[in-house]
Design a protein around this nucleic acid. Structure first.
Lengths: 197, 197, 197, 197
DNA sequence: AATGAATGAGCGTTCATTCAT
DNA sequence: GATGAATGAACGCTCATTCAT
């Protein structure tokens, strides 16, 4: 019972992501999510008080993966640059197995236009930045990355690159290996900014 | 006459960008654009046959600036890396004077979900990539950038960084100088990938 | 439950016929049907996916009566000419009790202009013709009607007369007895074409 | 000038009939008539004060042909039954050369729903009935038609048949000769009701 | 004699949400 | 835990009509 409730609630989140992936956030509607899930639109309001609460759950789901990655990386006790490389590889692997979720990476702005969602999105973006900036700073301290680098700018660059290649992947209809490209790209960045002395 | 026609049609494009900036693409409506322009919604259809035709005009306007930048850069006959630096500085300067337009850089995905707009968006993204990739390749040929670099990946990185910092600028409510940050960031990228021999 | 659903759905069909009767098919709107029924326009779409689906239900309702008449006539095992007389008398009686429905007999052409309705209208018209033509042919075989008669032409004549007198009835604001007139008119036709040897 | 004005005014009437024929009375709009004529919608209002005034002109045009037929028949001084036969043959010939106009014969009801047009339609229908009824009565007096016949009912029958076969012609996409069928059908009616003594 | 621009009313339809069952 | 019925607001769009030019 409690289990089936959770199951339904999470099912709705996954269905929502699918619908966003298929028809786009602008054409997302409670009805379409309900159809995808095989229930009535009204039934959704048993689980989520409003559309935005459902979207908040979607963002929670999205953000939860971030937390998991961040924690895992910390546990692994890799070198900072290896951590950067590893974390992005983790995302790439995940996204390759779940392409629909890349849709979310492209519509932060749309969520930001909804008052109730803005805070959540801003914190997701903020935490990603803090996480990456932290790794860069550690890398500098450990002389893995050249000291002249502005850590925030490099963090922005890495995330920007990652979102950009996700977009390209979507445009190309997933026709190349996201993971291989990301490995190459991130490798390229890290070696360019790494200390060569 | 002809002028006033152009005026109204272009005015609608600008109003549309403003409305997108203010309420977001998902809450954009013909009615709101009309209000912004001080006319009735029905009047818009005299100028654009449909909402998507208006949005297409918005994208044309957006893409026209790209063409202008690309052409200007070619004319200037700067070195490839200077061209990269200069073109992004041009965008940053432009966007600083017209912050609303940065909204467009964040919602490519949403346009792509509209069948009639997808082609236009894909060509904008494609052309930007080609332009930047071309400069990177020239730079490699002229030994300004190290030869191991994958030109497309670096191009993706530059645009990704640029869109990411635009997003950060929006989140920070335009509280820092976009231009200065872009100058620093692009400078950082270029020097990291430049030949040091 | 099931009953109340049917009730509402059929109620909407009847309201639609009333509205067509009152303001004409060109001025028919979902809003007006909703008002007649005492509900909101949006509520109609719970029962019918589109305006044309509602109109299709109206035509189904109209055509159902035809099927009933055709079946009843067959069961009665009257002579062919009596069957003709009886069936038109049945229509006349029905229409006298439900004048609004005569509006439908006058606007086949309008339904035909709607792609989704054309097939239904054409089948209604076609079935009526087949039914009447069949009775005429039987009558000829049984020597009730003279053999020189073209059965399809006579069938057209009978239905044409019937629709024409319905129109006259409407123009005269139902001021004469439709049933009596139809009885006289059909009687006149049948005796004119009947074998007198 | 005066001529070109008349030309335009009549051209609009003909265009209106064409548009009704092509898209149906419900989808008729001033704009579509204007396009058909190669002018702007606003320009139509130079010639006709309102849409209904244009439709009134259409009905005048339609009714003018009736007057012409009625007058010509009178002049010909044929026998009454020959007059009936001749007049319907005239219509059939005319309609065969101008199929679009048959659309008008199927939408009297729609015109009747427009207050400003109802009078005109009723007078068209009324005059046709009077004309035909008069011929039938003459025929009875001259012993061409049996005396038991109710002249109005027979007139209704003839017009009803004619409109019905026009509808059939439209449904069949003008695939048979309207004129031949009308000749046969009217011949059939007249011989059925004619005196055989 | 015609046009471009605009309007206000209306249309069919979709949406998030509520509520009784 | 879910449904069917309904609502009110909004949407994109079309229409007849007006008016300055």
């Amino acid at each position: 019972m409690g289990r089936s409730l959770i199951h339904t609630k999470e099912g709705l989140v996954l269905s929502t992501i699918d619908v966003i992936h298929e028809v786009g956030i602008s054409n997302l509607s409670i009805r379409k999510v309900a159809n995808e899930q095989g229930i009535t639109d009204a039934a959704i309001f048993r689980h989520y008080k409003s559309k935005n609460e459902l979207l908040l759950a979607v963002l929670d789901y999205f953000s939860k993966y971030d937390s998991d990655v961040f924690a895992t990386v910390q546990l692994k006790k890799l070198s900072p640059t290896d951590s950067i490389y590893y974390s992005l590889d983790t995302y790439a692997t995940y996204y390759e197995n779940y392409p629909a979720i890349t849709a979310l990476t492209q519509i932060y702005e749309v969520f930001r236009n909804e008052f109730e969602l803005r805070g959540k999105i801003d914190s997701i973006v903020g935490n990603r930045l803090i996480f990456m900036k932290g790794l860069v700073e550690e890398a500098i301290l450990l002389h893995e990355i050249v000291p002249q680098v502005n850590s925030e700018q490099l963090a922005l660059m890495i995330w920007g690159y990652f979102r950009e290649i996700c977009m390209k992947w979507r445009i190309n209809e997933y026709a190349f290996s996201l993971r291989e490209q990301v490995q190459e790209g991130v490798g390229m960045i890290l070696s360019a900014f790494s200390r060569t002395d």
